[in-house]
Design a protein around this nucleic acid. Structure first.
Lengths: 249, 249
DNA sequence: CGACACATTGACCAGACTCAAAGCTAGTGG
DNA sequence: CCACTAGCTTTGAGTCTGGTCAATGTGTCG
C-alpha cells in the first residue's frame, strides 16, 4: 500500500463514521476531504492535548488508539473515553476553549490537526455537516451517560463486558473489525482506570470472562468468541450509540 | 407577583444561564424571548419524556427540579443529571431523534415546550445562539465526564460533596441561591440513584457531613454551612462547568 | 389520628481493594 | 541467538468500603 492510498483509507474512517451516524451528500464528503490537515505522528503513551490547554485545532485520529482522561488528587486517574480512527476526540474544543481533561495516545497514533477556523467555515457553508458534527458531540455525551450507568449500577463483570460491546460496535462502524477481533492496545491497568476498578480486580474479571468463553484478550488484541453471550452478559443495548438510526424514521 | 411578571422572571432563568456561559447581544435575547412556548405544569414525580420517545419539541424548565435517568435490568435506576430552571434537559433531541433516557420531574415543574422547528430557525438566523446552544450541550457532556470521575475514583463522601458543589454553582448561576441554601426536593434514595450508592450508605454519608458541619439537608432544602470546607472535601474545581470563562481570554 | 413515605440505626455480608510475591513475555543489547 | 530486563499479568491473603436486610423512628398530610 502506498503512503498515498494509505492516507486515503485513513481519511475514509471519518467518512465511514459520519456515514454511520448522519445522512450526508457527496458535496459534504468532498468538503471534508478538502479540509487542510496537518498530519503528525505520536509515539505510544504520549499526551497530545493536556487539561488546561486552549487548542486552536481539532485532532482527527487517522490510525491508532487514544483516550481521554483526568488525573485527580492523589494521582488517581479516570479514563473517560477510548478513541479509534475516525474520531475527533476534542471536537468540543470548537466551543469550549479550555480543555477540562487530557487526550493521550495508547498506541502509536497518526493524527490530523484541523484549524478551528477551517471547521467553523465548513460548518457555516454546510449546514448538514454542522448538524452532523453537533450530533457527533451529542453521541459522545450519550456514551458518557452510559458510562455513568455502568459505573453506578452495574457489576464489575457487566461493566467490562459492556465496555467491550461498545468498542466492538464503534470499531465495526469504522471498518476495523477483523473477523471477530480487533486491536486494542491497552493494559489491564488502563481498563481499571476506565472502569473505576483496581487492576487486580480487572484481571480476575477478565479471567472469568475467558473461562466463560466470551472473549480472549492477549497481546493488544481483543477477540470476541461469543458476541451474543457478551451482549447478554453486559445487558448491552446498542441504541444509545445512535448508529444508523437516521436511516429508519 | 402577578402571573405575568412571574413568567418573565421564569424566562429570565434561561437568559441568565446563557449569559453565564456565552457572550450574547441584545438581539439574541430578543430572539429568545420571541420563541413560541407551550407552557405546561407537571406534578412531582412525573415522567415528562420517556426513553424511546421521539420528541418534536425541546423542554425548557421554568420552575422546579427535574432529573434525567435510566432504568436498567432488574429495575435498578441511575440518575444521570439534575436540572434546574433555565435548563433545557433534552436539547440533544434536536439532533438525536430517539431519547436514550427519560426526563422526570422531582418537584412540581412548570415547563415550556419549544418546537424543534422554531429552535432550528432561531439557530440558522442567529449563529451566536447556535454556538451558545451547542456549547450548552457540550457543558452538559463535561458534567457527565465529571460524574464518571466521581463514580470511578472518588469515595462516597467526596462524591456526594462534589454533587452538592456542582448544584450550588449551577443554582447560583440562575439566581436561585438564597443566602447559603437552595431548594433541592430529592430523597436520600434519589441521591443514592444519582451517586450509585445504596440509600443506607447515603444516609450515613450525609450524617457524617452534618457532623462535620458542612451542610444540612432537611425538608427539601440544602444548606451549605461551610462552602470552603465542602469544596475542599470534594476536591471541587469548578472549571469543568465552564461558567464565565468566555469573559476571560 | 392514622397512614404512608422517608430517615435512621444495627447487624451482618460481600464485592472489590491493597499489598506483596511470583510468573510471563516482548524487546534490548551483548 | 540468547540472557536480561522492564513492564505486565497472575495469584494469594487479609482488609475495608459500601451493600443488604430488617426494625424502629420521625414527620407530614389528609
Amino acid at each position: 500500500m502506498t503512503p498515498f492510498s494509505s492516507e486515503r483509507s485513513e481519511r475514509n474512517r471519518l467518512l465511514m463514521k459520519l456515514e454511520s451516524i448522519a445522512a450526508l451528500e457527496p458535496e459534504d464528503f468532498k468538503a471534508i476531504l478538502a479540509l487542510p490537515l496537518r498530519v503528525t505522528e505520536f509515539p505510544a503513551r504520549h499526551e497530545m492535548v493536556q487539561e488546561g490547554d486552549k487548542p486552536s485545532e481539532c485532532c482527527l485520529l487517522l490510525s491508532g488508539w487514544a483516550c481521554r482522561h483526568k488525573i485527580i488528587e492523589g494521582g488517581k486517574r479516570q479514563i473517560l473515553a477510548f478513541h479509534t480512527p475516525g474520531d475527533i476526540p476534542d471536537l468540543q474544543s470548537l466551543h469550549i476553549r479550555t480543555m477540562d481533561h487530557s487526550l493521550a495516545t495508547l498506541s502509536v497514533v497518526r493524527a490530523a490537526f484541523i484549524p478551528h477556523g477551517s471547521l467553523q467555515s465548513l460548518i457555516q457553508s454546510f449546514p448538514r455537516l454542522a448538524s452532523a458534527f453537533w450530533r457527533e458531540t451529542l453521541i459522545d455525551a450519550a456514551i458518557f451517560r452510559e458510562w455513568v450507568v455502568c459505573h453506578g449500577r452495574r457489576t464489575a463483570y457487566q461493566h467490562i463486558a459492556h465496555l467491550f460491546c461498545e468498542l466492538r460496535m464503534r470499531i465495526f462502524a469504522v471498518g476495523l473489525m477483523e473477523n471477530d477481533s480487533f486491536e486494542f492496545p491497552v493494559t489491564q491497568s488502563d481498563l481499571a482506570d476506565a472502569s473505576g476498578l483496581s487492576p487486580v480486580h480487572v484481571n480476575r474479571t477478565l479471567m472469568e470472562m475467558r473461562k466463560a468463553k466470551l472473549i480472549s484478550f492477549r497481546s493488544s488484541r481483543l477477540t470476541i468468541h461469543d458476541w451474543e453471550g457478551l451482549q447478554r452478559a453486559a445487558h448491552f443495548d446498542p441504541r444509545y450509540l445512535h448508529q444508523d438510526l437516521w436511516k429508519a424514521a
